[in-house]
Design a protein around this nucleic acid. Structure first.
Lengths: 337, 337
DNA sequence: CTGAAAGCGCTTACAG
DNA sequence: CTGAAAGCGCTTACAG
């Protein structure tokens, strides 16, 4: 370990001097661009290897006006911070970026404060951006478009100009609903969040798709959206129990948890008295007793793929405007007949 | 918005030309370093304001051999990814960094793979590092020490050379234990995780402190450490019930959840049959029915403070080797007498 | 108080 | 196949 720090920060110039070649030649050996003799290159590469030379990415960036950094937005809202979704995305992004010798800079944004994002752009700290969610009115996306910054978004947007990567929520919801219908679960309620979220619409469509597919009609009285509080959830669950539903489909794990709590308080048993399933997974639900039937999405892959697409975009390649990733349906005790 | 992009990337040279001064002078006006005439400065600052000039941080970095980036390690282990702890730390770090015009680059590390960290350092992408946890044998910390990279660590380490920021776990555990003892809860078990983790030791000490303080003796038969699985937890809970404990103290929220699940399966009521408390908070426990008594730590502040200390260190200031942050004891239904 | 010049460590036409 | 030179956008002794 004494050797590690013995010769510090050797530069392209040092190599050139040591080997009696020009800096240009060294640069070419490293980048692989431009013609260079095989012998010369080998000599240089060997020296680099032996002396553990690492190019200064900052200097390279200044010369090529690139940073080899990509920005990743993370939600700054306090209520979202608990969701492992964003952390898993980040893992995927980081893994892919790292493998391509890029680094990822994070930026906390909320709907009404994108100042961190602005700073990052204005300071020219990144080559491109990954947005970890899409909004109906999307200030971060608007800002990036105005400033001509390459970016991709995890999520779905109606804006055709935005490169999007998302799970196939619609297809997944359709499949889960279908499976339950095929098992004879008829009176099936659906409760979900903000209907102005794109994902809410997708889930709703999937639910409808399943009924249409089987030639059945949806009972609109069993659909409740825009649920925003535990209190609302409690009230709705009571209504649903009065209506004697057989199953409650929850659009996400958070709503599902609230439903489960309410049922517990009301001493209703799952799945004996009512079945439960969730259109989104989380470890919380898996660990529940009974385990909850839910859709499983590979969130880390979402990060990997979106990072790959952004990097391709930065290379000037064409990328598909929308990429849909798969899912799994995980049937558990909570929907057992 | 047409104006936003109309004149792109103006440089210090452009300003100098436009105003008939030298680049040196412009640089001085911006940095505030070196003598400069009031009028000249005002003129330059006004121009900057009007033309929305933003210095190129990369170029500045190359000239000063700084990056204005700090690195933040995040655990790459899949089992830790669900913990909101790291995300909250990140929020705090990001907020402080941003306010000082620094950016934060993330790096996923696990005990047996610090290659991302190495890359970041070798590529000279950051000025310093924040480690979000400490390990008994700590490869990331060792690496940083060898390479002389300034860093601080969130957590506690026996290595006196490491600048550490941590919650006062010992004090907090002592206080919660004390409160319960003072309420007459006598037969109180303690169960926790890996005893080679520093935090486990701190919590254990706090528990002992409380007994010693009140002149009571600890029953070692009620202490179980190195719990690593649900199965172990289940077995231990059974033993504890046989021993007729009045209360089970869980060292963290994850263990606590497993205990609660086991109790539920065994139809043991909380708090009527046995009381429960946790030495660590999480929204999961707050939302539990009944709500669980626990220690509350302000994790975001941990991030803010550690970032502030790192930045001070980078300025060459002396910082305390160890900083302890406060806590709150949150008494809930689960320990009601 | 102000400026010309060198330098940070790389890349890349251009010329040979 | 190789090199001298200019340039990326800043900073900072040094000289005036």
């Amino acid at each position: 370990m004494g050797t590690i720090n013995s010769e510090k920060k050797i530069t392209i110039g040092d190599i050139a001097d040591a080997l009696g070649v020009s800096k240009t030649t060294v640069s070419r050996a490293i980048s692989g661009k431009g013609r260079i003799g095989g012998e010369t290159r080998d000599k240089i590469m060997q020296y680099i290897e032996e002396h553990n030379y690492r190019p200064n990415v900052i200097a390279k960036g200044l010369a090529t006006s690139r940073t080899y950094n990509i920005g990743l937005t993370m939600p700054g809202d306090y209520d979202l911070i608990d969701l492992p979704f964003f952390q898993k995305c980040m893992m995927g992004v980081s893994e892919m970026a790292s493998s391509m010798d890029y680094d990822v800079i994070i930026s906390m944004v909320s709907a009404n404060d994108i100042s961190q994002l602005e700073r990052m752009i204005n300071n020219h700290k990144v080559d491109g951006i990954i947005l970890t969610r899409t909004l109906v009115s999307d200030p971060p996306a608007e800002f990036l478009k105005e400033h001509d910054i390459p970016f991709v978004a995890i999520g779905t947007s109606s804006d055709k100009q935005i490169t999007q990567i998302d799970n196939d929520h619609r297809g997944a919801c359709k499949e889960l609903t279908s499976i339950l219908l095929s098992r004879g679960v008829g009176k099936m309620a659906l409760i979900g969040g903000n209907r102005s979220h794109v994902v809410t619409q997708k889930r709703l469509q999937g639910y409808f798709d399943a009924f249409v597919d089987r030639g059945m009609t949806v009972d609109n009285d069993l659909i409740y959206l825009d649920i925003e509080s535990k209190i609302m959830t409690d009230k709705i669950v009571e209504e649903l129990l009065d209506k004697k539903v057989e199953c409650i489909l929850c659009m996400d794990d958070s709503i599902c948890r609230n439903v489960l709590n309410k049922l517990k308080k009301s001493q209703i048993r799952v799945p004996q008295d009512v079945k439960i399933a969730s259109f989104y997974n989380s470890s919380m639900l898996e660990n529940n007793i009974p385990a909850i039937t839910s859709l499983q999405f590979d969130v880390m892959r979402l990060g990997v793929v979106s990072c790959r697409l952004l990097l391709e975009k930065l290379e000037g390649k064409e990328v598909p405007q929308r990429t849909l990733l798969g899912y799994e349906v995980s049937m558990k005790e909570s929907t057992q007949v």
